[in-house]
Nucleic acid binder design. Sequence first.
RNA 1: GGUGCCAUCGUAUAACGGUUAGUACUCAAGAUUUUCAUUCUUGCAAUAGGGGUUCGAUUCCCCUUGGCACUACCA
Length: 545
Amino acid sequence: MERRVRVRFAPSPTGALHIGGVRTALYNYLFARQHGGDMLLRIEDTDSTRFVPGAEEYILEALDWLGIGIDEGLRMSQKSKVEGQKTIEAVGSHGPYRQSERREIYHRYVKQLLDSGHAYIAFDTPEELDAKRAEIPNFQYDARTRMQMRNSLTMAADEVQQLLDKGEKYVVRFKVEPDEDVHVHDLIRGEVVINSNILDDKVLYKSADDLPTYHLANIVDDHLMEISHVIRGEEWLPSAPLHVLLYRAFGWEDTMPHFAHLPLLLKPDGNGKLSKRDGDRLGFPVFPLEFHNEKDGTVSSGYRESGYLPEAVINFLALLGWHGSGDQEMYTMDELIKDFSLDRVSKSGAKFDYEKGKWFNHQYLQLRSNEELAAMFLPVLKEKLSTFNFQPDDFSQLSTLNSKLPTIVGLVKDRVNFVPELWEQADFFFVAPTGYDEKSLKKRWKEDSPKHMQELLALLETVSEDDWHKNEQIVNDQMVNTHWHLDDVVMPWIAEKEYGVGIVMNAFRICLVGAARGPHIWNITDVLGKDETLRRVRTALQNIR
RNA sequence: GGUGCCAUCGUAUAACGGUUAGUACUCAAGAUUUUCAUUCUUGCAAUAGGGGUUCGAUUCCCCUUGGCACUACCA
């Protein structure tokens, strides 16, 4: 009889959520959804010294942005999202879902371990332990050394009680029995065996802040919250045997969750795991959202603010350490849920390939409608225009420009990876050239160009405003081509005068754009309109050379 | 140092003992084009090394090498 699938993502609020953590959350989510199970979110804030304000909200907002839904535990309130404010809600009957709010629970279970003889009280201070480590190389608090230390195993019961009554600081340590092969069955790696001799008597309960360590809290919570599968990063593999021993000590071995340890995300260059510094150094975000760390005053860039689409980040991350059943690379979240399998998670660490991430974003950008992209581009555009003596308020009154925005975006979107890059591709639609690109002039502005432009100017003057924009779609060979009226005006003239089409049109392009770039020329004239087009040609005739 | 995990083109990965070792990104070349880009086509490029097992190893085993993680009153 299989249990209901219940998985959890359990981050620590010690800063921005690392992209590797996002992938762990994603795999948990995919697994839960695929099996019709529950995805829980629990906050592991048992280290009061490392707590960073805002980190919890950040984590929940990031998952929300990416579409990684939470069924139980802490999550962004959906109701408040509509109202535009960000509040956190707790759902489910296994709470509280913040470990700092579960102190009494841990007390109870620590006592159980103490009573059953699986744990003991130790009075050794951090200073004493440091001294010991300095004195004895590779010192480890374990079966070999514990009888030389100050703890409830070496001291008489009344002496221990005396110290406790006096309020002496103490920790609770797990009593690891020596010479035992501990087997951990990992869903990704198979059977892992570690001898208990190399395990130390881990601290389960800290004296410093009256809270348990990760190991104790984790086992107690996963048990109480009826977690069926623990899917977490590979850094936890070495302590998995300890966790097995803890389940056993509690008598919970029959309902112990299945383990799956995910490969780590590595630096793109060199060695080591991906860190915050790599992002700064190599120029890409390692966090989903921008984060302002109140504790140390640092600001970390995020995928969202860099112009990434959430579905691109999800797709990219999903394929880092996992592959589908076929050659498919573009996956919607629903498709991922259908195809996901722990069997196809790789064992080795994955170097973070940022270029592939850019490619994914390009792909997903093309899938968005021009209207959507225009809406995303608008804030960037206003920002850019404000540097051209264009006040953002003025811009909002330029309704014609506003209505043309989707068209403009549609003309250049296939050449960008990110929304903000639309500006570099489309700037000339909004601002007339302020200069002319040297290279383009050298190659495309010929001796006859001024004469050509004069004649072209006169020719275009004769075109009516209506005809200016006239075009028809021609379908042949399943290709859609646009035939422009202006072609009928200009091409015969070029043919008659025996000018080169390239020579004329490239010069014309320089007048309008300022360089040899941009979409098809009639698309540009169509957006600019007759007046603006002619104005730019006159300006160019005055200013070039 | 100790323990564990891992090892296919530069990168992500495919090939559940038999393939000309596949795909995608990157890069290069070509085609298309009135520019730039897109797009399309082609190309470059890998089984870490050494032993076994087998008729046959990318695949199974061992050793070496290398990479990574852990080794806190952090998670």
